[in-house]
Design a protein around this nucleic acid. Structure first.
Lengths: 195, 195, 195, 195
DNA sequence: TATGAATGAGCCTTCATTCAT
DNA sequence: AATGAATGAAGGCTCATTCAT
């Protein structure tokens, strides 16, 4: 299968780097090819077009990203701990790969409607993980039940996302991972039931 | 003064529409000119280049946007009411002008570092409004003081922003404004002091 | 008459300066207008189009230039002195107005065939002066008669012109006028009869 | 090596023709591409920009031009014959390629300072050939020693150049090459020692 | 006459994509 | 499969010229 060939991975990784360094619109296919160590034409043996590269980058990288978070939260029993794990892994994975962080937080926000739709498809899995935590929390009465889930999910995702964006925009000058407990505390406070 | 001329406004408004419909990078200058009802060359009497259009769009539109919110929150006495007002006006203004909403939530996220820097400059005023509310809240012991302000601000802005983005992505199918009380409730819950 | 109005002269002088400073193709009409202290549109009350400005510049400036030389050589009796006068005045006039020198030696060489034709018309008068000196010289047996006049004229004009061009290209760093006697000596040597 | 590829030569030759026919500033890149039988974009695989085409045209064509003259004069022993050879080859080469003649005599005179500088660099070699002939002539007492070399060089180059320009301007209606002996005679007369 | 805002045709250059080798 | 030279469509921007005031 095409995706298992070494050049496929080389192109994906090259694309992440080039996009992180130049931004999506300044990322010429030839630049990606050079960084990946292949000829320009070779790109088109693996990808339909430039847009397809971007979508594939997101699917590959975010797929793994989400996968890890999904698995880790499943392993946890406690709802609060699930959320903490989610936040921590989210921060950790981006802190470790700042190229990916730039691409995720900044570059992927742009682009055509149909790219965005595909990206949202992938993101859907992530949001599902959040929803499941919330549902479990409501069931266990750790999370308030008077607000609908999408709203709470938006707070969780919005807060995490905004925090990472801030970190990226400030050129990763502070320690993102160490913020996890406070973010968790803040969110749990908002979510908790008001006895 | 250049900005008071009717064509300036026409171009800004044309740009908002065209960018909302096509995305920034697919928005040819000639398209903006046509929508504004001016010749292509006229654009360059009012704007340095295409990038300058985008920045001006943001400064003009977001400037007013933020101005309104800043004034309205200042008029309120109660901290909780200030936050509610902020959320409500944020939602209302974007709900009323969905072209602007698309540009704000999607198109402006992209683009070169130097565009982003300029945009952040404008946004700074908005974040300052949030910070002031938080500071006042801490003083009045309505807001917890054990977390730093940037973090809480990120929750507030992140949640509001994510909510609007969701609304835009779902093609404005639900009533954004009516969400304000719940968002407010959720955020205040997270922020409140834990006695 | 149009040409006597003060703005006509202002535009011509502005054009000479702007062209000397920027080169013909980087000399926008608006730049010339600004330098002349008139509105862009005013230019077109005095000139048909941009090309017409260039031609008029040449006619005005070179007209005077040639006029002076023609008169001065006529006043001289001696053929040798006539040629010396011609060389000296040629050098002097350009040395005094280096903007004009740049325009004459460099900028006017370019441009469309039909501009060149008009320029040549003006130059014709200058070449006629040379021819008359040569004819007189031949008559008086000071100038050899075994070569045709155009050839000798080309030597005279070519040598003078090349000397000025060199001076312009070297940024007028040496004294052009003081070269006149040597140039005259050299040319007379070539022209003299070989007894 | 880039310059050896057939398309490089095709573009250079196409450029010479198009520039000769239209003048440099009216020579669109697309016209040159069409004449050369390549796509517009192909031009930019071989040349940095439009200006680079002009400079390359000059370097290539004038390089060969000067090379031939330099070699031929070196082969001659006699100083007078060296000069005759120079004049003859100069005329012959331009007579044979009238497109090149137009470009050399008219189009290359124009243009930005930095183009001119590059052109002068190439021309320098030609002027050096003249200087060497003069020095040899002085040594052998065939050329007068009371005038400085640059001045005499200006007469030689100026006369030759002016003659060619006249020929080009008169649309090559007379036989340029046959003028060589007279031009030579005239110049030698000017240069000779006055015993 | 004079103004200068407005016009819009025109062109260099980029770069995603193709295809002969 | 892989290459990379070649393609050519597309668009931002300039500037000579016009015309309503």
């Amino acid at each position: 299968m095409r995706k298992n060939r070494p050049k496929y991975k080389a192109i994906i990784d090259g694309a992440v780097q080039v996009i992180a360094e130049n931004g999506y619109h300044a990322s010429q296919v030839s630049k990606i090819a050079k960084k990946a160590g292949v000829a320009d034409g070779t790109i088109y043996l693996y990808f339909k077009n430039k847009e397809d590269i971007l979508i594939s980058v997101f699917k590959e990288k975010m797929g793994q990203f989400i996968q890890k978070i999904a698995e880790a939260t499943h392993r946890e029993q406690d709802v609060k701990k699930k959320l903490l794990t989610l936040i921590q892994l989210h921060f950790e994975q981006l802190a470790v790969d700042h190229h990916l962080a730039i691409v995720t937080q900044l570059e992927l926000r742009q682009s055509d409607p149909n790219i965005r739709m595909q990206i949202n498809n992938v993101l859907k899995d992530y949001l599902d993980v959040i929803d499941m935590i919330l549902e479990e929390g409501i069931e266990q009465k750790v999370v308030r039940s008077d607000l609908n889930i999408p709203l709470m999910r938006q707070m969780i995702f919005g807060t995490i996302d905004e925090t990472v964006t801030n970190w990226v925009m400030k050129n990763q000058k502070f320690d993102l991972v160490s913020l996890a407990p406070d973010v968790h505390n803040l969110l749990m406070n908002g979510l908790r039931t008001n006895e």
